[in-house]
């Protein structure tokens, strides 16, 4: 068993390393290793960048995790909620055809649209399908179809050109010792952390939040306790949609707005929620943070193109040691 684990880890490591080795063989530049006095500063910078990336993944992943927790659906279309939020805010804020709103009201409107989109797909697609007893695999395939549909609607409406919001686009970094961060990135990180804390308080301290956790733990028992499960599920879809849209605006702000940005982020979201423990909102937060930090820290030694691969390698290694994820709980049986 131990040998099998070591072999799997070594195989995964080999697969991840292969492109780096071939790139070196071709004489391409790779980041310098841990040499020289500037390495500590670069490592700190990568850590800060990683935390920022991690909290953005976390905001988008929480909804995905809550949906899985409450209805056991792996929503492949969740990335498109991110894209819809980012592109709608772009339309309101920076598109020549839009009203030219400031980014803040545009972001609020995008969050509202994300929540409405979440509600619409629950009421219009998932609820009727669940009522007809559609199996989970079939539902999963439907999410892939929905993902393609939404992504290509965005492609038609938004186009392929990357875009930036009208405000907070170019800023000079504030130096905090060896670390430099722009006021925009600092604000996004702080806001994202505050939103995640808000979600935690909502889940832990409010009646609705406890009902969400109860439905995640045992749907039928929640219904038997007097909880209107359908309403709770609707709330989860709206919360997830709103958070994904907000994450989309944040991601579009620190990177660029593209028609497939959510799809690209989706793998990181899945990695985050699996690493943290499937179905656990707190696990999604912790897992996403780890994924973000690992992805950025890996750029200290390896090409940037491989940062996602390193994050996924860490996922495999952690699951080999702790199959239930970081915060997933092994349950007593019997």
């Amino acid at each position: 068993m131990r040998c099998q684990r070591v072999f799997t880890a070594a195989l995964a490591l080999g697969l991840v390393m292969l492109p780096a080795v071939t790139a070196r063989a071709r004489g391409e530049d790779a980041p310098r290793g841990p040499v020289g006095p500037a390495f500590g500063g670069r490592a700190l910078q990568a850590l800060v960048d990683g935390i920022q990336f991690g909290v953005i993944i976390a905001i988008t992943a929480v909804g995905l995790s809550l949906v899985f927790g409450t209805i056991h659906l792996i929503n492949f279309a969740h990335g498109e909620f991110v894209t819809v939020g980012a592109t709608f805010a772009f339309f309101l804020n920076a598109s020549p055809a839009g009203p030219g709103w400031h980014l803040i009201p545009a972001a609020v409107a995008a969050v509202a649209l994300g929540a409405l989109l979440g509600a619409a797909v629950d009421r219009g697609v998932w609820r009727p399908l669940r009522a007809r007893g559609t199996g989970l695999i079939n539902l999963f395939i439907v999410t892939i179809g929905l993902s393609l549909l939404l992504r290509h609607i965005v492609l038609v409406l938004y186009g392929t050109r990357p875009g930036s919001y009208a405000q907070y686009d170019i800023q000079s970094a504030i130096g905090l010792g060896p670390v430099g961060i722009t006021p925009r990135d600092l604000t996004v990180t702080v806001l994202a952390v505050l939103v995640l804390l808000g979600v935690a308080v909502l889940l832990q301290r409010t009646r609705t939040g406890t009902a969400v956790r109860a439905v995640s733990a045992n749907r039928d028992l929640a219904e038997a306790s007097g909880i209107d499960v359908r309403r709770v599920v609707l709330f989860v879809w709206m919360l997830g949609g709103g958070l994904a849209a907000l994450g989309g605006v944040f991601f579009g702000l620190v990177e660029t707005v593209t028609w497939d940005m959510g799809f690209k982020l989706l793998l990181m979201m899945f990695a985050g929620i699996i690493l943290g423990g499937l179905g656990s909102a707190y696990g999604a937060m912790a897992g996403s943070l780890v994924i973000g930090v690992v992805a950025q820290m890996s750029t200290l030694w390896f090409p940037v193109d491989l940062q996602y691969a390193w994050a996924l390698l860490v996922l495999i290694v952690v699951l080999l040691v702790r199959p239930q994820g970081i915060l997933g709980r092994a349950e007593r049986v019997g």
Binding site: R207, T210, A211, R213, A214, S216, A217, N218, D220, L221, A222, S225, G226, I227, R329, E331
Partner: peptide, 19 residues
């Protein structure tokens, strides 16, 4: 599966008076 396994005993009882 007659209890909320991931919730505490107190939270289980609170679920009982959810309404």
């Amino acid at each position: 599966q007659n209890v909320f396994a991931s919730l505490t005993v107190e939270e289980n009882l609170r679920m009982g008076v959810y309404l």
